[in-house]
Amino acid sequence: MKKLVLSLLVPVLAAMTMIVGGGTASAASNPYTAAGACAHDFGGSWQQASTRGRYAINSWKGHAADVYLMYNAATGYNCVVTIKRLNVGTATRTGAHLEVQGGATKGQWGDYKYYSAVQAFARDRCIRFFGSVWVNPETDSAGPSDTWGNCH
């Protein structure tokens, strides 16, 4: 009888351990999309740029963030947003950079929980952009900061 009870009880206890907290931890998902982050900070409706509009930032800890180039056709503004994939919900150094050819250079750097975003007017102008995120003990970045493109 003892063996029967133990043989039934062990799998139940193992399952409860996984449910209560003995399982593996998973990364928190970011509640913001690129379009949502740009709309949250600047208003309006944003679409991902058609060419070179997304770059992944990979670090030694994995997929750290994504850098998006967004465009608002109604206003002529571009938005660059770095969406965190690691350390989501924890304020860590995160940045977004946007340079308009013959115009403004804008950067937004700080300790953010979810994303960093910046916008600049760029109708009929080319831009270049990049983003960065700090993943202890280093900063990683991505984006085509060396070439002009996405001329709208």
Rank of each mutant, 00 (worst) to 15 (best):
G36S: 13
R52W: 10
P144T: 01
T92N: 10
K106F: 03
V67S: 04
C126F: 03
V12H: 00
Y55E: 14
Y68V: 02
I57Y: 10
Q119W: 03
C79N: 05
G44D: 12
Q47C: 00
P137S: 08
L86A: 12
G149N: 04
I57D: 10
V133L: 08
C38A: 15
Y71F: 10
T17Y: 13
L9H: 06
D146W: 07
A37G: 14
D140V: 15
V20E: 05
F129V: 13
K2D: 10
Y115S: 06
Y114T: 05
G76F: 03
A142I: 00
G149F: 07
A64P: 06
S145W: 15
R52D: 15
G36I: 12
G110M: 02
T75H: 08
T94C: 06
V12Q: 00
A39N: 15
A120T: 10
Y77G: 02
V10D: 00
G76A: 06
W148L: 12
G21P: 07
A122I: 03
S141E: 12
N150M: 04
A91L: 03
T92E: 09
A73S: 15
R128V: 03
M1Q: 08
V88R: 09
E138D: 13
A74L: 10
I127E: 09
V118E: 02
A34M: 08
A65Q: 05
M1S: 14
P137H: 11
F42H: 11
L4H: 08
G131K: 04
G36Y: 13
A120C: 04
A56H: 02
V5D: 01
L8K: 02
G21T: 11
G21N: 00
H63I: 04
R93P: 01
A104I: 04
T105Q: 11
F129C: 05
S29N: 14
W134V: 05
A39I: 04
G36V: 09
Y68T: 02
V20K: 07
E99I: 06
N30K: 13
P31Y: 09
N30W: 11
M18S: 07
